[in-house]
Amino acid sequence: MIVKLTHATVYVLDQDRARAFYTDKLGFEVRDDARMGDFRWLTVGPKTQPDVRIILMPVRGPATSAEATAALRAAVESGALGGGVLECEDIHSTYEDLRARGVEFPSPPKQMPYGLAAVFKDDSGNYFSLSEVERRK
């Protein structure tokens, strides 16, 4: 039985820039940053969720063909690849914090049927939903 998601992949255009964005702007921590020849294993995650890693995978891998790299790059740059959904404890203050750090929000916080949600982009162009965690009673 599969019990848990431990790693998820986000394709990025530049790993140095992505590392800076995810740590300095989003406040994530670096979990791994190791080089094996041309391959750089770079993972980050939120400090309150240590058992999941987001892999910041370059669109150009050591074994990725030029065609696949170009297709991935175009998909990332056009915003065709969503990064996922992130939760915060107070969407309005998190939105203001992130905007003050220069994070681009195509959509500010809005009431949705399931709760409050905003949409931001990472430095490569991946879209993420930001939602507010349901208040625990």
Partner: peptide, 18 residues
């Protein structure tokens, strides 16, 4: 120098020719 690769999930090592 490949000590780190022991901690990288197998699918990525295979996919990237490592």
């Amino acid at each position: 120098r490949l000590v780190q690769s022991a901690f990288v999930p197998a699918c990525f090592l295979l996919f990237h020719g490592l």
